[in-house]
């Protein structure tokens, strides 16, 4: 039987975050459960699912989403609802806006606060906020993330870099404003107030997103696992994810997973043999470690079914 942990090394960072990426329906949740179960033998592991289909609730018989539930000794799980979290986040800001600027109602702008949860980037922000706190979480040795759809995940991974660019610009302007205030006050002999809450907040934000950016590109702190199927669209998405990780984060996945590989006789019978063969050839030619999981006639519906998949895993390229 293969050792999945060996394929993810180095995993020194505490907590070490494993992000499982891939197209919807390829088996990200099953792979995440498999990896979490293996990692929990080494230390306390939390599996968090952002999967909008909430498959994990079914697999692990969980009835209370959002809560951290103990599955076995060191294996914990939580299902997050990105829409609910977005609502919570924006309602916090909505009340802040209403409290801070009651005059907005005069300008008829208070409706902005109600529409905030639909603002572009809010879902990504929820994921990023969670990710940022995950790296600070000292309660777990490993955190495995069953990611939301690829679009949201990749945009989220891009955000720290983008935010840092914006923050640098804002900091430059703000520093100039504060220094001008200082010079004007000094010249006119007024009392000088050096500290500026906005500049302090900007520095804090730069530090926060800088830490996330650094952690994401550090292989000892973050492992990327990309799951695909022997079909054209999941393979296309795999290539896109690889390109993104290489170009934007200057990193590569620790492990590639080819899931639901049809046995040869069934593939021939379904007329999918040639296509599957070509895709698997391309998959095996990709750099890095990779494994294959065969298609099972009864889709896994509970934890035991998924854990049994481990026996059928074959290593394409090892450490």
């Amino acid at each position: 039987m293969i050792n999945l942990v060996d394929l993810l090394k180095p995993i020194e960072g505490a907590p070490h975050v494993v992000m499982v990426l891939g197209k919807g329906g390829v088996g990200k949740t099953s792979t995440s459960i498999l990896i979490s179960s293996e990692l929990s033998r080494l230390g306390k592991t939390l599996l968090v699912s952002f999967d909008p289909a909430k498959h994990i609730l079914k697999y692990l018989s969980i009835s209370r989403p959002a809560e951290v539930i103990k599955v076995s000794d060191d294996f914990f799980v939580s299902q997050l609802d990105i829409e609910v979290s977005a609502k919570e986040l924006t309602s916090k800001y909505s009340s802040l806006i209403s409290d801070l600027f009651p005059s907005l109602s005069v300008l008829n702008l208070e409706d902005i606060t109600k529409a905030l949860k639909y603002a572009p980037g809010v879902e990504e922000e929820v994921f990023l906020n969670w990710l940022s706190s995950a790296y600070e979480n000292k309660n777990f040795r490993f955190i495995v993330i069953d990611t939301p759809p690829t679009g949201i995940s990749l945009r989220t991974l891009m955000l720290p870099k983008l935010y840092l660019l914006w923050l640098e610009k804002l900091i430059n302007i703000r520093e100039r404003i504060v220094s001008l205030r200082y010079v004007i006050a000094k010249t006119l002999g007024r009392e000088v107030k050096v500290s500026d809450p906005a500049l302090i907040k900007l520095y804090e934000m730069r530090e926060k997103y800088g830490r996330v950016k650094e952690a994401l590109t550090d292989p000892s702190r973050t492992s990327f696992v990309v799951v695909t199927n022997p079909e054209p669209l999941p393979m296309y998405e795999l290539r896109e994810v690889l390109k993104f990780l290489g170009e934007e984060l200057s990193t590569s996945p620790k492990l590639l997973v080819m899931n639901k590989v049809l046995p040869e006789d069934i593939a021939v019978r379904l007329g999918a043999h040639e296509e599957q063969k070509a895709i698997i050839e391309e998959f095996t030619s990709l750099p890095g470690r990779s494994i294959m999981i065969p298609y099972v006639s009864n889709p896994p519906s509970k934890l035991e079914d998924i854990l049994r998949l481990r026996e059928a895993v074959t290593v394409v390229k090892g450490a």
């Binding site: 986040l89 800001y93 802040l96 806006i97 801070l100 702008l109 902005i112 905030l116 603002a119 572009p120 980037g121 809010v122 922000e125 955000l159 983008l162 935010y163 914006w166 923050l167 610009k169 804002l170 302007i173 703000r174 404003i177 809450p197 906005a198 302090i200 907040k201 900007l202 934000m205």
Partner: peptide, 29 residues
């Protein structure tokens, strides 16, 4: 200019992420 950049996203001008802008609001009261 600074306030326009920060408040822009709240009125539909995509100068930066709305969440960054909201995080800064309290400090700019």
């Amino acid at each position: 200019a600074f306030l326009t950049m920060v408040l822009g996203p709240l009125v539909g001008v995509a100068t930066l992420s709305p969440i960054l802008s909201l995080e800064l609001l309290e400090a700019l009261k």
